[in-house]
Computed example of a mutant assay.
Amino acid sequence: MIWSLIIGALIGLIAGAITNKGKAMGWIANIIAGLVGSAVGQGLLGTWGPKLAGMAIVPSIIGAVIVVAVVSFFFGKSNQ
């Protein structure tokens, strides 16, 4: 359980850095993005590659990038 939260936070942190939204998200949002992104990525791409805490790292990061991009598209602040 603790490992899943730690790995989820790392995956969310990496996804936030890739999308440049990491500073806008808090650490709880990083954990949620990592865990949800892991489920999305493994559902779409399978469970190939190295695994930590039961999560395939590469598909999880790709899924988290998708989740962060979609959420920031719908809930991001506009620059008007």
Rank of each mutant, 00 (worst) to 15 (best):
L52S: 07
G22R: 10
W3S: 15
I11K: 06
G43E: 05
K51D: 05
L13V: 01
I61D: 03
G16N: 05
V58M: 07
I31R: 08
V68P: 11
T19I: 09
I31N: 02
A15P: 04
L13D: 00
W48Y: 14
F74C: 13
I14C: 07
G46Q: 04
L52R: 06
L10F: 12
G54A: 07
V58I: 14
G12V: 10
P59C: 02
F73C: 02
G37D: 01
A15H: 02
I61T: 02
M1L: 03
Q42V: 10
G16Q: 09
I28S: 07
G26C: 03
G34E: 02
I61R: 04
K51R: 11
P50V: 01
I57M: 02
S38H: 12
S72Q: 15
S60M: 01
A56V: 00
M55K: 10
I18V: 14
G34D: 01
V40C: 02
M1G: 10
S78G: 14
A29N: 15
V65H: 09
I2G: 11
V36E: 01
G76I: 05
P50F: 00
M25E: 09
L44W: 07
G76Q: 09
F73Y: 14
V68Y: 08
V36R: 06
M25A: 11
V71H: 10
P50I: 00
L44R: 09
A29G: 15
G41N: 06
W27R: 05
N79C: 00
G54V: 03
N20L: 02
V36M: 01
A69T: 13
G12Q: 10
A53R: 07
G22W: 09
I66G: 09
A33K: 00
I31A: 12
V68N: 06
V40Q: 04
V71L: 15
K21V: 06
G22I: 10
V68G: 06
I14P: 00
F75G: 08
I7W: 10
F74N: 12
F75T: 13
L5K: 05
A69E: 14
V70L: 15
L52Y: 09
I11E: 04
I31C: 12
A17E: 15
A56M: 03
G49D: 04
Q80M: 05
G63D: 06
K51G: 00
G41C: 09
G34M: 01
S72D: 15
Q80N: 13
K21C: 08
I61S: 05
K51I: 06
I11T: 05
A15V: 08
I31V: 15
F75V: 09
L35P: 08
A53D: 05
G12C: 08
L5F: 13
K23A: 14
L35F: 12
M25Y: 13
G22L: 12
K77I: 13
A56D: 02
I7Y: 07
F74G: 12
F75I: 11
V36T: 05
G8E: 03
L10C: 12
A9H: 11
A64R: 08
I62K: 05
G16Y: 08
L5W: 10
I18C: 09
F75M: 14
L44F: 13
K77P: 11
L13T: 13
A17H: 13
N20Y: 11
G43I: 08
K23C: 00
I62D: 03
I62T: 04
G12K: 06
G54I: 01
V68L: 06
I61F: 00
L35E: 09
A69C: 08
A24R: 15
I62W: 03
A29K: 14
G16V: 05
